[in-house]
Write a protein that binds this DNA or RNA. Structure first.
Lengths: 223, 223
DNA sequence: CGCTAGATTGAAACGAGTCAATTACGGTGG
DNA sequence: CCACCGTAATTGACTCGTTTCAATCTAGCG
């Protein structure tokens, strides 16, 4: 199903990166790789998903449904990221949705196996701690930005972040504008209007539905 | 300094609850207990705080400063909770503030010692994972509630949560109204107005600055 | 018992949401 | 390769909730 061995794939995953060859072998034996088509829901709120899922290729969107029924995009996960941890730590059910954004190869590890590795391999637990700690930090950032900054400023910060992460001023939105808007805590119309305003004054240049060229990063960081 | 032994205190802390007597002893040897007066800042954004802090008594408020300078209350920690983990996992500097809300006894563990326990004692790592996972979940909840629900609804949900957690309909705000408002992602004036509106229709009864009696929980959950 | 930070209230301005109507993109099939 | 179609994005006009600013008021500590 893949030109690389399962062992090799496992060794590339950040949370397993400190394991030795024997340990990697053992994990590889327990892992179930699968290719999921674009748009497939991996699990939804209320599901009892017993697997830790690790992304080998593709992208996964994680979102929640507010009580009043609106979708809130929480984060987008890519190669090397894992998801589903909340349902085996604490043994509850999922409270969010996970959907592939494109065809993705994902390995699943049963929670019993995972608990086993956690108790025997401190490096796995430590790597997970690192990841969760970083996620917490970035979610707290999102929270304070949504309540404390106005829409235009959030858009500007987001574009600058994309530019920084990609290392270029010609960025491509990882998700649809509607989803980016949700991630930024605003409606799609507002996001569209802010972008249009930035283009108006020559700060950015929109190309197609996903492309944005940042012409004046200085001006962006000032807004 | 305290009528209980340090060992006893350590054994009461959730993340150390699975340790055996010898391990508890060892942790106790490395721990530095201290009593902090009300209002003391334990650390601030930008500080390199090398300690994991564990609360034995009292309350600690964790908040952030948005880019535009507004304070955003993230969470309130109580007995048994820990803080400061972000600065030893990932080895960065703090990006938030921690302030005691009242006189609090807090034990500090140096990050080197903590890393040591993490690598030797899987139960400690697992307990920390549990906590971080729960915090992540609740912060995600806050996020989607702030963007998806309107102020009145957030106030109602919050009051119901306080009532549920305390097991009574006569609740006491753990922090000032200004801080609660910040936690709920609104201005103090808005919070005040929502409470006044609820009192107006006989759903709640305000008493003093911190006391709220919930007269009609049914009506609250409907708003 | 008086002072001060916290809380309340009012009026007005504004940012973002809503609803609805177009327009444009980008994947598909001819 | 191009025309077509469905989905996504844009735009406009309007509404509404929340913030803002300012003026009291009051709880609760010293």
């Amino acid at each position: 199903m893949h030109e690389h061995s399962l062992e090799h794939l496992v060794s590339l995953v950040p949370i397993f990166s400190k394991l030795d060859a024997d340990e990697v072998n053992e994990v590889a034996k327990r892992v179930r790789p699968r290719v999921h088509p674009r748009g497939e829901q991996l699990y939804g709120a209320g599901d009892d998903n017993p697997y830790l899922m690790i992304i080998h290729s593709g992208w996964v969107k994680v979102s929640r449904l507010t009580e009043s029924g609106h979708e809130q995009v929480i984060r987008v996960l890519g190669v090397g990221d894992f998801l589903g941890e909340a349902t085996f730590i604490g043994s509850g059910v999922a409270d969010h949705f996970a959907v592939t954004l494109e065809e993705s190869e994902i390995c699943s590890l049963h929670r019993d196996d995972m608990r086993d590795y956690l108790s025997r391999s401190p490096s796995v637990a430590y790597k997970m701690l690192e990841t969760l700690s970083n996620r917490l930090e970035s979610t707290e950032n999102q929270l304070s930005s949504v309540t404390g900054e106005e829409a235009g400023h959030r858009v500007a910060s987001y574009l600058l972040r994309l530019a920084r992460e990609s290392g270029t001023n010609q960025v491509t939105l990882p998700i649809s504008k509607k989803d980016v808007a949700s991630y930024l805590g605003m409606k799609a119309e507002t996001f569209s209007r802010r972008l249009a305003a930035l283009e108006e004054v020559g700060t950015v240049r929109l190309s197609g539905n996903r492309g944005i060229g940042i012409l004046d990063p200085e001006a962006l960081s000032r807004s």
